[in-house]
Simulated scan of single mutants.
Amino acid sequence: MKPALTLHDRTLQLARFPLRKNETLQAWDAADEYLINHTHEMALDPQRPILIFNDSFGALSCWFADKAPVTNVSDSFVAQQGCLQNLADNQLPSIDMRSALDDLPANPQLVLLKIPKNYRLLSWQLQQLCHLVPEDCIIIGAAKVKEIHTSTLKLCEKYLGETKTSLAVKKARLVFIKPNKALAQPMPQPVQWDVPEHGFTITNHANVFSGESLDIGGRFLLDHIPQDPSLKHIIDLGCGNGVISLKAAQLNPQAKVTSVDESHMAAASCRANAELNLDTPEQIHAIVNNCLDNMEADSADLVLCNPPFHQQNTITDHIAWQMFCDAKHVLRPNGQLIVIGNRQLGYDDKMKRLFGNVTKIAQNNKFIIYRSSK
Protein backbone atom coordinates (compact mmCIF):
# COMPACT_ATOMS: atom_id res chain seq x y z
CA MET A 1 0.00 0.00 0.00
CA LYS A 2 1.35 3.42 -1.01
CA PRO A 3 0.65 5.87 1.86
CA ALA A 4 2.06 9.05 0.31
CA LEU A 5 0.68 11.02 -2.64
CA THR A 6 3.50 13.06 -4.18
CA LEU A 7 2.75 15.52 -6.97
CA HIS A 8 4.26 18.89 -7.93
CA ASP A 9 6.91 18.79 -5.17
CA ARG A 10 4.25 18.28 -2.52
CA THR A 11 3.56 15.15 -0.46
CA LEU A 12 0.40 14.19 1.43
CA GLN A 13 0.20 11.24 3.82
CA LEU A 14 -3.17 9.64 3.10
CA ALA A 15 -4.91 6.64 4.65
CA ARG A 16 -8.20 4.88 4.08
CA PHE A 17 -10.77 4.81 6.87
CA PRO A 18 -11.19 2.94 9.10
CA LEU A 19 -7.51 2.16 9.51
CA ARG A 20 -6.62 -1.51 9.07
CA LYS A 21 -3.44 -3.42 9.75
CA ASN A 22 -1.64 -4.48 6.57
CA GLU A 23 -3.81 -2.26 4.37
CA THR A 24 -3.33 -3.17 0.69
CA LEU A 25 -5.34 -0.33 -0.87
CA GLN A 26 -4.39 3.33 -1.20
CA ALA A 27 -6.63 6.28 -0.29
CA TRP A 28 -6.74 7.91 -3.75
CA ASP A 29 -6.97 6.87 -7.39
CA ALA A 30 -5.79 7.93 -10.85
CA ALA A 31 -8.85 10.17 -11.27
CA ASP A 32 -7.80 12.16 -8.18
CA GLU A 33 -4.29 12.56 -9.60
CA TYR A 34 -5.68 13.63 -13.00
CA LEU A 35 -7.84 16.33 -11.37
CA ILE A 36 -4.91 17.64 -9.33
CA ASN A 37 -2.60 17.72 -12.34
CA HIS A 38 -5.19 19.44 -14.55
CA THR A 39 -5.95 22.18 -12.01
CA HIS A 40 -2.36 22.66 -10.78
CA GLU A 41 -1.72 25.95 -12.61
CA MET A 42 -5.28 27.23 -12.35
CA ALA A 43 -5.56 30.72 -10.80
CA LEU A 44 -7.85 30.35 -7.79
CA ASP A 45 -9.61 33.07 -5.83
CA PRO A 46 -8.69 32.50 -2.15
CA GLN A 47 -12.13 33.80 -1.10
CA ARG A 48 -14.52 31.85 -3.35
CA PRO A 49 -15.62 28.31 -2.44
CA ILE A 50 -14.39 25.12 -4.05
CA LEU A 51 -16.95 22.29 -3.96
CA ILE A 52 -15.67 18.71 -3.95
CA PHE A 53 -18.24 15.95 -4.43
CA ASN A 54 -17.81 12.28 -3.48
CA ASP A 55 -14.19 12.55 -2.32
CA SER A 56 -13.40 8.95 -1.37
CA PHE A 57 -11.08 9.54 1.62
CA GLY A 58 -10.22 13.22 1.30
CA ALA A 59 -7.31 13.29 -1.16
CA LEU A 60 -8.83 16.16 -3.14
CA SER A 61 -10.08 18.00 -0.08
CA CYS A 62 -6.62 17.81 1.47
CA TRP A 63 -4.94 19.03 -1.71
CA PHE A 64 -7.12 22.14 -1.98
CA ALA A 65 -7.69 22.84 1.74
CA ASP A 66 -5.06 25.62 1.93
CA LYS A 67 -5.90 27.19 -1.44
CA ALA A 68 -9.50 28.42 -0.94
CA PRO A 69 -12.57 27.64 1.22
CA VAL A 70 -13.33 23.96 0.53
CA THR A 71 -16.72 22.29 0.98
CA ASN A 72 -16.67 18.51 0.96
CA VAL A 73 -20.06 17.16 -0.18
CA SER A 74 -20.62 13.47 0.40
CA ASP A 75 -23.33 10.98 1.30
CA SER A 76 -20.73 8.84 3.07
CA PHE A 77 -20.05 9.35 6.78
CA VAL A 78 -17.07 6.98 6.52
CA ALA A 79 -15.55 8.90 3.59
CA GLN A 80 -15.87 12.15 5.50
CA GLN A 81 -14.31 10.67 8.66
CA GLY A 82 -11.40 9.56 6.50
CA CYS A 83 -11.12 13.07 5.09
CA LEU A 84 -11.09 14.63 8.57
CA GLN A 85 -8.39 12.20 9.72
CA ASN A 86 -6.22 12.93 6.68
CA LEU A 87 -6.62 16.69 7.13
CA ALA A 88 -5.45 16.33 10.73
CA ASP A 89 -2.55 14.03 9.83
CA ASN A 90 -1.27 16.58 7.30
CA GLN A 91 -1.81 19.63 9.58
CA LEU A 92 -4.15 21.24 7.04
CA PRO A 93 -6.84 23.88 7.61
CA SER A 94 -10.33 22.72 8.50
CA ILE A 95 -12.92 22.53 5.73
CA ASP A 96 -16.71 22.62 5.50
CA MET A 97 -18.34 19.17 5.61
CA ARG A 98 -21.85 18.78 4.19
CA SER A 99 -24.06 15.82 3.43
CA ALA A 100 -25.59 15.18 0.03
CA LEU A 101 -28.90 16.60 1.35
CA ASP A 102 -27.52 19.86 2.74
CA ASP A 103 -27.70 23.28 1.10
CA LEU A 104 -24.42 24.33 -0.51
CA PRO A 105 -22.41 27.58 -0.35
CA ALA A 106 -23.19 30.14 -3.06
CA ASN A 107 -20.95 31.36 -5.87
CA PRO A 108 -18.41 28.51 -6.12
CA GLN A 109 -15.47 29.06 -8.44
CA LEU A 110 -14.62 25.40 -8.99
CA VAL A 111 -16.53 22.14 -8.70
CA LEU A 112 -14.69 18.80 -8.68
CA LEU A 113 -17.09 15.89 -9.08
CA LYS A 114 -15.93 12.32 -8.57
CA ILE A 115 -18.60 10.67 -10.70
CA PRO A 116 -20.59 8.10 -8.68
CA LYS A 117 -21.69 4.77 -10.11
CA ASN A 118 -25.23 5.40 -8.88
CA TYR A 119 -26.94 7.41 -11.62
CA ARG A 120 -29.74 8.48 -9.27
CA LEU A 121 -27.17 10.18 -7.05
CA LEU A 122 -25.37 11.66 -10.07
CA SER A 123 -28.63 13.08 -11.42
CA TRP A 124 -29.43 14.58 -8.02
CA GLN A 125 -26.01 16.24 -7.74
CA LEU A 126 -26.09 17.59 -11.30
CA GLN A 127 -29.51 19.15 -10.74
CA GLN A 128 -28.36 20.59 -7.42
CA LEU A 129 -25.39 22.21 -9.18
CA CYS A 130 -27.53 23.58 -12.01
CA HIS A 131 -29.49 25.63 -9.46
CA LEU A 132 -26.35 26.80 -7.68
CA VAL A 133 -23.35 27.51 -9.88
CA PRO A 134 -22.65 30.84 -11.65
CA GLU A 135 -21.77 30.87 -15.34
CA ASP A 136 -18.05 31.37 -14.67
CA CYS A 137 -17.81 28.30 -12.41
CA ILE A 138 -15.49 25.58 -13.71
CA ILE A 139 -16.99 22.10 -13.35
CA ILE A 140 -14.80 19.02 -13.84
CA GLY A 141 -15.91 15.46 -13.31
CA ALA A 142 -13.58 12.49 -13.07
CA ALA A 143 -13.70 8.71 -12.92
CA LYS A 144 -12.08 5.59 -14.28
CA VAL A 145 -12.49 5.29 -18.04
CA LYS A 146 -14.60 2.15 -17.64
CA GLU A 147 -17.07 4.06 -15.44
CA ILE A 148 -17.72 6.91 -17.89
CA HIS A 149 -20.29 5.76 -20.44
CA THR A 150 -22.31 7.52 -23.12
CA SER A 151 -25.22 7.43 -20.66
CA THR A 152 -23.05 9.25 -18.06
CA LEU A 153 -22.34 12.07 -20.49
CA LYS A 154 -25.99 12.27 -21.53
CA LEU A 155 -27.01 12.79 -17.90
CA CYS A 156 -24.48 15.62 -17.59
CA GLU A 157 -25.85 17.20 -20.77
CA LYS A 158 -29.45 16.79 -19.66
CA TYR A 159 -29.18 18.17 -16.14
CA LEU A 160 -26.26 20.61 -16.15
CA GLY A 161 -24.90 21.67 -19.54
CA GLU A 162 -22.64 21.08 -22.52
CA THR A 163 -20.27 18.22 -21.78
CA LYS A 164 -16.88 17.25 -23.22
CA THR A 165 -14.31 14.66 -22.19
CA SER A 166 -10.53 14.51 -21.99
CA LEU A 167 -8.12 11.92 -23.25
CA ALA A 168 -7.55 8.99 -20.92
CA VAL A 169 -4.56 9.08 -18.56
CA LYS A 170 -3.72 6.05 -16.38
CA LYS A 171 -7.18 4.64 -17.21
CA ALA A 172 -8.91 7.77 -15.87
CA ARG A 173 -10.80 10.46 -17.74
CA LEU A 174 -12.00 13.99 -17.03
CA VAL A 175 -15.44 15.37 -17.92
CA PHE A 176 -15.81 19.12 -18.53
CA ILE A 177 -19.30 20.57 -18.05
CA LYS A 178 -20.33 24.12 -18.96
CA PRO A 179 -23.27 25.08 -16.71
CA ASN A 180 -26.52 26.17 -18.38
CA LYS A 181 -29.08 27.75 -16.02
CA ALA A 182 -31.82 27.19 -18.63
CA LEU A 183 -31.69 23.47 -17.76
CA ALA A 184 -32.61 24.05 -14.10
CA GLN A 185 -35.74 22.23 -12.97
CA PRO A 186 -37.34 21.41 -9.61
CA MET A 187 -35.29 18.99 -7.54
CA PRO A 188 -36.65 15.43 -7.73
CA GLN A 189 -38.65 14.05 -4.83
CA PRO A 190 -37.69 10.77 -3.14
CA VAL A 191 -39.12 7.68 -4.85
CA GLN A 192 -42.01 5.88 -3.11
CA TRP A 193 -43.46 2.40 -3.47
CA ASP A 194 -45.67 0.06 -1.43
CA VAL A 195 -44.87 -3.20 0.30
CA PRO A 196 -48.48 -4.39 0.59
CA GLU A 197 -47.78 -7.73 2.28
CA HIS A 198 -46.34 -5.82 5.26
CA GLY A 199 -48.51 -2.71 5.02
CA PHE A 200 -45.61 -0.31 4.39
CA THR A 201 -45.12 2.62 2.05
CA ILE A 202 -41.38 3.10 1.52
CA THR A 203 -39.63 6.29 0.47
CA ASN A 204 -36.04 6.40 -0.79
CA HIS A 205 -33.58 9.25 -1.30
CA ALA A 206 -31.34 9.08 -4.35
CA ASN A 207 -28.35 7.16 -2.99
CA VAL A 208 -30.13 4.47 -0.98
CA PHE A 209 -29.65 0.85 -2.01
CA SER A 210 -32.44 -0.65 -4.12
CA GLY A 211 -33.94 2.73 -4.82
CA GLU A 212 -37.13 1.80 -6.69
CA SER A 213 -38.31 -1.45 -5.10
CA LEU A 214 -37.72 -3.66 -2.07
CA ASP A 215 -34.54 -5.69 -2.58
CA ILE A 216 -34.98 -9.45 -2.55
CA GLY A 217 -32.65 -9.99 0.40
CA GLY A 218 -34.52 -7.49 2.54
CA ARG A 219 -37.84 -9.05 1.52
CA PHE A 220 -36.59 -12.48 2.66
CA LEU A 221 -35.29 -11.15 5.99
CA LEU A 222 -38.62 -9.43 6.75
CA ASP A 223 -40.24 -12.84 7.23
CA HIS A 224 -37.67 -13.95 9.83
CA ILE A 225 -37.44 -11.06 12.31
CA PRO A 226 -38.10 -12.26 15.88
CA GLN A 227 -41.17 -11.18 17.83
CA ASP A 228 -40.24 -11.36 21.52
CA PRO A 229 -41.59 -9.22 24.40
CA SER A 230 -38.22 -9.53 26.20
CA LEU A 231 -36.46 -7.48 23.50
CA LYS A 232 -35.81 -3.96 24.77
CA HIS A 233 -33.23 -2.65 22.30
CA ILE A 234 -32.89 -3.73 18.67
CA ILE A 235 -30.21 -2.47 16.28
CA ASP A 236 -30.66 -2.50 12.51
CA LEU A 237 -27.04 -2.31 11.32
CA GLY A 238 -26.74 -1.10 7.73
CA CYS A 239 -30.37 -0.02 7.80
CA GLY A 240 -30.72 1.44 4.30
CA ASN A 241 -34.24 2.85 3.94
CA GLY A 242 -35.22 1.31 7.27
CA VAL A 243 -37.71 -1.33 6.12
CA ILE A 244 -36.15 -3.91 8.47
CA SER A 245 -36.33 -1.38 11.31
CA LEU A 246 -40.02 -0.81 10.56
CA LYS A 247 -40.83 -4.50 10.75
CA ALA A 248 -38.78 -4.97 13.93
CA ALA A 249 -40.62 -2.02 15.51
CA GLN A 250 -44.00 -3.28 14.33
CA LEU A 251 -43.41 -6.77 15.77
CA ASN A 252 -41.85 -5.46 19.01
CA PRO A 253 -43.64 -2.27 20.09
CA GLN A 254 -41.98 -2.48 23.52
CA ALA A 255 -38.48 -2.16 22.03
CA LYS A 256 -36.52 0.88 20.93
CA VAL A 257 -34.89 0.45 17.52
CA THR A 258 -31.57 2.07 16.62
CA SER A 259 -31.09 2.22 12.85
CA VAL A 260 -27.49 2.73 11.72
CA ASP A 261 -26.05 3.42 8.29
CA GLU A 262 -23.01 5.23 6.94
CA SER A 263 -25.18 6.97 4.30
CA HIS A 264 -26.77 10.28 5.22
CA MET A 265 -29.49 9.65 2.63
CA ALA A 266 -30.21 6.21 4.10
CA ALA A 267 -30.62 7.61 7.62
CA ALA A 268 -32.87 10.38 6.29
CA SER A 269 -34.96 7.83 4.36
CA CYS A 270 -35.27 5.70 7.50
CA ARG A 271 -36.52 8.68 9.52
CA ALA A 272 -39.03 9.56 6.80
CA ASN A 273 -40.29 5.97 6.69
CA ALA A 274 -40.75 5.86 10.45
CA GLU A 275 -42.93 8.99 10.20
CA LEU A 276 -44.82 7.53 7.26
CA ASN A 277 -45.52 4.06 8.67
CA LEU A 278 -45.48 4.05 12.48
CA ASP A 279 -47.96 5.47 14.98
CA THR A 280 -44.98 6.15 17.25
CA PRO A 281 -42.14 7.06 14.86
CA GLU A 282 -39.92 8.03 17.78
CA GLN A 283 -39.56 4.28 18.43
CA ILE A 284 -36.90 4.35 15.69
CA HIS A 285 -33.73 6.41 16.10
CA ALA A 286 -31.77 6.62 12.83
CA ILE A 287 -28.10 7.70 12.90
CA VAL A 288 -25.04 7.80 10.65
CA ASN A 289 -21.98 5.99 11.96
CA ASN A 290 -19.04 3.80 11.04
CA CYS A 291 -20.70 0.51 11.99
CA LEU A 292 -21.29 0.72 15.77
CA ASP A 293 -18.37 2.97 16.76
CA ASN A 294 -18.64 4.40 20.29
CA MET A 295 -21.89 2.60 21.10
CA GLU A 296 -22.34 1.27 24.61
CA ALA A 297 -21.20 -2.27 25.32
CA ASP A 298 -23.80 -4.83 26.46
CA SER A 299 -26.66 -2.50 25.51
CA ALA A 300 -28.63 -4.38 22.82
CA ASP A 301 -30.69 -7.56 22.76
CA LEU A 302 -30.77 -8.10 19.01
CA VAL A 303 -28.72 -6.91 16.02
CA LEU A 304 -30.15 -7.37 12.53
CA CYS A 305 -27.64 -7.04 9.72
CA ASN A 306 -27.50 -7.21 5.92
CA PRO A 307 -23.80 -6.42 5.34
CA PRO A 308 -22.50 -4.68 2.21
CA PHE A 309 -19.63 -6.41 0.43
CA HIS A 310 -18.03 -3.29 -1.02
CA GLN A 311 -16.57 0.01 0.19
CA GLN A 312 -16.78 2.81 -2.37
CA ASN A 313 -15.92 0.89 -5.58
CA THR A 314 -13.83 -1.80 -3.84
CA ILE A 315 -15.19 -5.30 -3.12
CA THR A 316 -14.18 -6.29 0.40
CA ASP A 317 -15.31 -8.37 3.37
CA HIS A 318 -13.72 -6.23 6.09
CA ILE A 319 -16.95 -4.25 6.62
CA ALA A 320 -18.90 -7.43 7.38
CA TRP A 321 -16.19 -8.50 9.84
CA GLN A 322 -16.27 -5.10 11.55
CA MET A 323 -20.07 -5.26 11.75
CA PHE A 324 -19.96 -8.69 13.39
CA CYS A 325 -17.24 -7.62 15.86
CA ASP A 326 -19.14 -4.45 16.76
CA ALA A 327 -22.35 -6.43 17.17
CA LYS A 328 -20.68 -8.77 19.64
CA HIS A 329 -19.42 -5.76 21.59
CA VAL A 330 -22.84 -4.08 21.93
CA LEU A 331 -24.91 -7.22 22.53
CA ARG A 332 -25.85 -8.21 26.05
CA PRO A 333 -25.05 -11.76 27.20
CA ASN A 334 -27.42 -14.11 25.32
CA GLY A 335 -28.15 -11.33 22.82
CA GLN A 336 -28.45 -12.41 19.19
CA LEU A 337 -26.97 -11.37 15.86
CA ILE A 338 -29.09 -12.23 12.81
CA VAL A 339 -27.38 -11.85 9.43
CA ILE A 340 -28.55 -12.32 5.86
CA GLY A 341 -26.12 -12.77 2.99
CA ASN A 342 -25.65 -14.30 -0.42
CA ARG A 343 -24.99 -18.01 -0.16
CA GLN A 344 -21.42 -17.76 -1.49
CA LEU A 345 -20.24 -15.16 1.05
CA GLY A 346 -19.66 -17.67 3.87
CA TYR A 347 -20.73 -15.46 6.77
CA ASP A 348 -21.32 -18.52 8.94
CA ASP A 349 -17.56 -19.15 9.20
CA LYS A 350 -16.93 -15.61 10.45
CA MET A 351 -19.83 -15.75 12.90
CA LYS A 352 -18.74 -19.09 14.34
CA ARG A 353 -15.14 -17.85 14.77
CA LEU A 354 -16.39 -14.81 16.64
CA PHE A 355 -19.33 -16.14 18.68
CA GLY A 356 -18.46 -19.83 18.90
CA ASN A 357 -21.88 -20.77 17.55
CA VAL A 358 -24.00 -20.23 14.45
CA THR A 359 -27.39 -21.55 13.36
CA LYS A 360 -29.00 -21.46 9.94
CA ILE A 361 -32.49 -19.94 10.33
CA ALA A 362 -33.68 -20.03 6.73
CA GLN A 363 -32.43 -20.20 3.16
CA ASN A 364 -33.61 -19.91 -0.41
CA ASN A 365 -31.85 -20.31 -3.74
CA LYS A 366 -29.87 -17.07 -3.25
CA PHE A 367 -29.72 -16.11 0.45
CA ILE A 368 -29.05 -17.69 3.84
CA ILE A 369 -30.06 -16.20 7.20
CA TYR A 370 -27.80 -17.05 10.16
CA ARG A 371 -28.08 -16.49 13.90
CA SER A 372 -25.36 -16.36 16.55
CA SER A 373 -25.80 -15.84 20.30
CA LYS A 374 -23.39 -14.04 22.61
Rank of each mutant, 00 (worst) to 15 (best):
L44Y: 11
M323G: 07
N313F: 10
R353E: 13
L251I: 07
E197K: 12
A106R: 02
R120G: 08
L276S: 14
N334S: 07
V358Q: 10
D29P: 04
R98K: 08
L122T: 09
Y159M: 06
L113K: 03
E147R: 08
N90M: 06
T165V: 15
S56N: 13
I50H: 11
L237C: 02
S151M: 05
L222A: 05
N334R: 15
D66E: 10
I115A: 07
Q81Y: 09
D66S: 11
N54G: 03
K328I: 07
L221W: 00
N357Q: 07
H264Y: 15
L222D: 08
L129A: 06
T359C: 00
D293I: 04
T11I: 07
Q26P: 00
L337G: 04
Q13C: 11
V260F: 02
L132Y: 10
A300G: 04
F53S: 01
P226R: 02
L304G: 12
G341M: 15
A362G: 10
P108A: 11
N37A: 13
K178L: 12
L214E: 05
Q127F: 12
D55S: 14
E135P: 07
V191S: 12
E262K: 03
Q344H: 15
N22W: 13
E296M: 15
A59F: 02
L92Q: 08
K366T: 15
G217I: 09
D136E: 08
N241S: 05
P93H: 06
T152V: 10
F209R: 09
M187A: 14
E275S: 05
H8I: 06
S56Y: 07
F367D: 08
R20P: 03
H310A: 00
A15H: 08
M295N: 14
N334L: 04
F176M: 09
A15F: 13
Q312G: 12
A248E: 02
L7F: 06
F77C: 07
R353P: 03
Q189I: 08
A172K: 11
F57Y: 14
N241C: 11
T359Y: 14
A168W: 10
R120W: 08
Y370P: 02
P229D: 14
A184D: 01
K232Q: 13
I95H: 01
L44P: 06
V330I: 08
I244S: 00
G199H: 03
Y34H: 12
D326S: 03
H285Y: 01
V257G: 03
E197Y: 10
L104H: 01
K256Q: 15
E296S: 15
G217H: 09
L12C: 02
P105H: 13
